[in-house]
Design a protein around this nucleic acid. Structure first.
Lengths: 321, 321
DNA sequence: CTGTTAGCGCATTCAT
DNA sequence: ATGAATGCGCTAACAG
């Protein structure tokens, strides 16, 4: 690979001039520019980005830390993040944390090592203690500190809509199927919205959650139904839980939506893979990804950043209610 | 952020010594090492990776170029690639090409710019002309040149198995539902295997493919069925096509597998989202990801590399046959 | 307008 | 065993 000096020599100019040409900065005579460009072409010269970053003391690489990229919601999110970043000359690094704090911390270190310039963070870990203020980090569905930018869908409104919808469909025995709320995330507000809507109307409902993470989801669903088999309307906190519940109900001879109606949350894309279209609260995951990308870039470039994005959700009518 | 000089000053040693400590290279007295390590801790020093890469003239970042990360097969592949890379101190960059050649070329340039050290490539583009030999590139399902390493599942065997399976299930009117084979990829061998198995036995079948990429997949499926509505056994070249076909058949009142049996190819993960489990040829996408990651790393580190990985597939019996 | 030079943070000789 | 000096490829400041 040829360096800036090779180009300078071939073009018969100084390295400063070459730098000015490749960066379109400062003055350079049209004649000289032509000579330099010719030399660049002849040598197939490409500026070494490492050297540039070393001087600029920054990196145009953004890391996306998430539990696993192998999840339809996250991979769609990642897609949109990458599209926006790339349009602005940034690159996207992916880290599957698998919920391991050590791996998350490792990537935070890359911030100091200047490998990456910023982080978009989807996590349930308690990493507050490890984070100093004013780090170029954007979190999703998580309000870590007052300083930190975060983005989420309107979980609270979504919970309310789910309750309202189930009622409007004639359900009288409502239930909430939650996950593992061991950490305080914005996702809790789904339940809160659901609860508040019903409580305001003095309508009782049952709730099922599990403090400890359970490996076997099918067992989890079974436990849920064994305890609450009289329900005729369920709000599942994620689409995947909703689908699993529907499959379970079918397996025990219950009909959806006739016997039980189910509403999910997320709006994951299915590529026509599912036969029953799920009624669900759709997050604008594309917009969320774009907002996340723009926010990190703004932090990195020290521009103004909105501290908080709460994006509107929408109920999509499917065949499960 | 503190630099190596700050550490040297605080520890009362030269920068060379600090370098020797952080890299565990050369001799350094136990006493001195302790002093240096103390200084490092006190300052929270992290070596600047940019500077290291500049000297080493390499990058421990690998790029994965694929059509879109928002596809269940690719995102699973990416997951496993990242796991292996990360275990070896490498990082993974994601690029959604959306089938655009320009974007693919842009990332190949990053190789020269030293931003990345290698590429794992999933593409249909004709990029041969742009690629010089001996680039640290591994391709998936694509045999670009004799020099280039490639990895794929045993598409040919998969095609044969699909044909054999449909016959064994009693189908007598077989069809192949293909995609857009405008470029020569290993995927063609799925059809070849299917064809050869049937031709050997003198069993006729019909084939449906489209040269130009069609945006509307549903229309594509409809066209297919309108032309070949007498089929009772179909091998769809991908799972997604298979699912779309099944949904279409249901919509026109056909029963699967009673009226028509369908076999797919890929074995994409569904997280219990689908009710009908598809019978399909399962690619070992996890192993493929791991092999891809190991291959690029070996190229980057100039170790021995196997030129070709053809990984075995397996038919998974579902409810669609 | 352009050439020269210092220095980004680090690894690596080379004396000592 | 260790400190000083040199240079990786580049940008920015400065002199001309």
């Amino acid at each position: 690979m040829s360096s800036i000096r090779d180009v300078a020599k071939l073009a018969g100019v100084g390295v400063g001039t070459v730098s000015r040409v490749t960066n379109n900065s400062g003055y350079v005579a049209e004649q000289t520019r032509k000579k330099v460009e010719a030399a660049i072409k002849e040598l197939g010269y490409e500026p070494n980005e490492m050297a540039k970053s070393l001087i600029a003391n920054n990196s145009k690489i953004i890391a996306l830390i998430l539990p696993t990229i192998h999840h339809p919601l996250f991979s769609k999110f990642a897609y949109h993040v990458e599209q926006v970043l790339n349009a602005n000359g940034y690159k996207l690094l992916i880290c599957n944390s698998n919920f391991e704090v050590e791996k998350e911390l490792e990537y935070i270190k890359l911030l100091n090592k200047k490998v990456i310039g910023g982080i978009i963070f989807i996590t349930n870990s308690n990493i507050n203690d490890y984070l100093s203020e004013n780090l170029p980090i954007v979190t999703i569905d998580r309000h870590l500190s007052n300083e930190m930018i975060y983005i989420s869908s309107d979980n609270y409104a979504g919970g309310r809509q789910a309750a309202k919808h189930l009622l409007s469909k004639g359900c009288s025995n409502l239930g909430f199927l939650g996950g593992f709320p061991n950490v305080e995330t914005e996702v809790h507000k789904r339940k809160q919205g659901f609860n508040d809507f019903l409580t305001d109307k003095n309508i009782p409902y049952t709730s099922f959650e599990e403090e400890d993470v359970i490996e076997d989801f099918d067992k989890y669903i079974e436990q849920f139904w064994n305890k609450h088999s009289s329900l005729d309307g369920v709000f599942a906190v994620t689409d995947i839980l909703a689908y699993k519940l529907i499959n379970y109900l079918h397996s025990i001879g219950k009909k959806v939506p006739e016997d039980v109606k189910v509403v999910g949350y997320d709006g994951i894309d299915l590529f026509d893979i599912s036969q029953t279209k799920l009624t669900t609260i759709v997050q604008p995951i594309d917009i969320m990804g774009e907002a996340a990308a723009e926010s990190v870039m703004n932090i990195v470039e020290k521009k103004k950043v909105k501290h908080k994005y709460i994006l509107p959700v929408e109920l999509r009518q499917g065949e499960s209610t």
